[in-house]
Design a protein around this nucleic acid. Structure first.
Length: 489
RNA sequence: GCCCCCGUCGUCUAGAGGCCCAGGACGCCACCCUUUCAAGGUGGAAAUCGCGGGUUCGAAUCCCGCCGGGGGCACCA
């Protein structure tokens, strides 16, 4: 039997790394086993559906390189790819209604006419008695006459599952082993809402069966509802798929990742300049390991080795520091041209369109200094900015010249006249020239260079000075040095 | 309140009875390199394997209890 797995997001907002990790593990599992990876959109809650969210999810998957074999067509999401469609649940309503009806007829489900207010009341009363807040099964025991009467009133109704009152339900989790729950702790959950839409439990069980899903790999927050799903499979007389509940990804506060952790959204990460390869690698190691020492792992290697037996059952905190490091590793592995073209949009967004050729030349100066693409802008802006830089006199003088600003001025003036006469303007010449000048002035090279650095780049931390000067060019370099002199008058 | 899951350095993890007075990685500290910052190199601090009982010649690894953390309990997924 070939493996068929699915990633079933609900389009209710920005996808975050937790969602993406689930998608990644499903994708890796499918690829490793030569199986099929399916994208299914679970949009059965009309109130929570956010316009554009479905597109955002698809963009995130594509960005990471997780292409699906079946699901909405990325070119045109109103169409489907694959033989088991539609893959958007709101387009499958009649199917769920038919199966709900079947369950009612088979005596596994019943209509419930209880208004929300009554349910609320019941729940409150349960809590007051320190009992789990559950439905009291009122409508389960309606007589035929009562039922007919309510039916004639035309009251809105839902379909509820007739959960067995006794016994227990268990399933084998591929990561955690057997998990058993007493049926008496379960209630008669809703299958079909009064608006005719199915609830998750029904929709996912029906679809997983109809789509021949073999393995359900989902977050561990689903463990408590899996017994209900098992009960549904039994009621339908269907063979349930295998289950594996993945460890959750937690925020730094050790709580489940949610909208509250806004910076963990894929859009945010992409916007800050994390590379998809880095995120892929990082996420792949959150709950899974290749061995006891390998950290940088190619997509091919992941596919070759990924399996469920090396997934850890315990939750993991999303450690952005490690992602930063890993992103730096991947940035350094890029070619000059690749990095330049990735950097281009970040620069032009902040500085207006930039000279791509100049950017390409600037890449070697920043490549090993950045952890995210976004950082490059602040680090290399001085290369592209016209005119003088912004900084304080205090920064310019630093500790070395704080007590002797006149010496700093003299040094800068000397640098100006020395540089003016320079015929060749490359890093090597500049360095030789400035080194001898520092010696002549009796200044420590470090102190003197820092003066130049702040004047030319506007910062006390910058890429190597002379390569920077080379890129900035003679004209702007002199302009900025003279400006620095002026500030010291 | 009830049910379920989880528990090895701050964090991600290796470990499936002796190879472990616990290995790797991020981060942190120091030194080297060095015009700043990085990158790179070398070294270091950092887990009494949540706690307490067993089982065993021997336990991070098996069993029990406890504690702690998290998740679930909707006409949300």
């Amino acid at each position: 039997m070939t493996v068929r797995v699915r990633f079933p997001p609900s389009p209710t907002g920005e996808p975050h790394v937790g969602n993406l990790r689930t998608a990644l593990f499903n994708w890796l599992f499918a690829r490793h086993h030569g199986g099929t990876f399916i994208l299914r959109i679970e949009d059965t809650d009309r109130d929570r559906v956010v316009p554009g969210a479905m597109e955002a999810i698809m963009d995130a998957l594509l960005w990471l390189g997780l292409h699906w074999d079946e699901g909405p067509d990325p070119q045109d999401p109103t169409h489907d790819i694959g033989p088991y469609g539609p893959y958007v649940q709101s387009r499958r309503l009649p199917i769920y209604q038919r199966y709900a009806q079947e369950l009612v007829e088979a005596g596994h489900a019943y209509y419930c006419y209880c208004p929300p207010e009554r349910l609320e009341q019941v729940r409150k009363e349960m809590v007051r008695q320190k009992l789990p807040p559950r439905y009291d099964r009122h409508c389960r025991y309606l007589t035929d006459d009562q039922r007919r009467e309510l039916e004639e009133k035309g009251l809105p109704r839902v379909v509820r599952f007739k959960t067995p009152l006794a016994g227990e339900t268990s399933f084998y989790d591929l990561i955690r082993g057997t998990i058993t729950v007493k049926n008496e702790t379960l209630d008669d959950f809703i299958l079909l809402k009064s608006d005719g839409y199915p609830v998750y439990h029904l929709a996912s069980v029906v679809d997983d069966h109809l789509m021949s899903i073999t393995h359900v790999l989902r977050g561990e927050e689903w463990i408590p509802s899996t017994p209900r799903h098992i009960l549904l499979y039994q009621a339908f007389r269907w063979q349930p798929p295998h289950f594996a509940h993945l460890p959750m990804i937690l925020g730094p506060d050790k709580a489940k990742l949610s909208k509250r952790h806004g910076d963990m959204s894929v859009r945010e990460l992409k916007g800050k300049g994390y590379l998809p390869q880095a995120l892929f690698n990082f996420l792949g190691l959150l709950g899974w390991s290749l061995d006891d020492h390998t950290e940088i792992i190619s997509q091919e290697t992941f596919i070759r080795h990924f399996d469920l037996d090396r997934i850890s059952p315990s939750p993991a905190i999303f450690n952005i520091e490690k992602l930063n490091w890993m992103n730096g590793v991947y940035i350094r592995s890029l070619s000059q041209d690749e990095l330049a073209s990735l950097l281009e949009p970040f620069f032009s967004r902040r500085l207006g369109s930039v000279n791509v050729d100049l950017l390409k030349q600037a890449v070697p100066l920043i490549q090993e200094r950045i952890k995210t693409l976004e950082e490059a802008v602040a680090m290399a802006a001085f290369v592209f900015l016209p005119g003088t830089m912004e900084y304080s006199v205090q920064e310019l003088l630093g500790k070395a010249f704080a007590q002797r600003p006149q010496e700093a001025r003299t040094a800068l003036e000397a640098a100006c006249s020395r540089l003016e006469g320079l015929e060749v303007w490359d890093a090597q010449t500049l360095e030789e020239s400035m080194r001898t000048l520092a010696q002549r002035l009796g200044l420590r090279t470090g102190d003197f260079f820092m003066l130049l650095r702040v004047a030319i780049t506007g910062r006390t931390v910058s890429p190597p000075l002379f390569q920077s000067m080379q890129l900035v060019g003679k004209e702007r370099t002199l302009l900025r040095l003279r400006d620095a002199v002026r500030r010291l008058c």
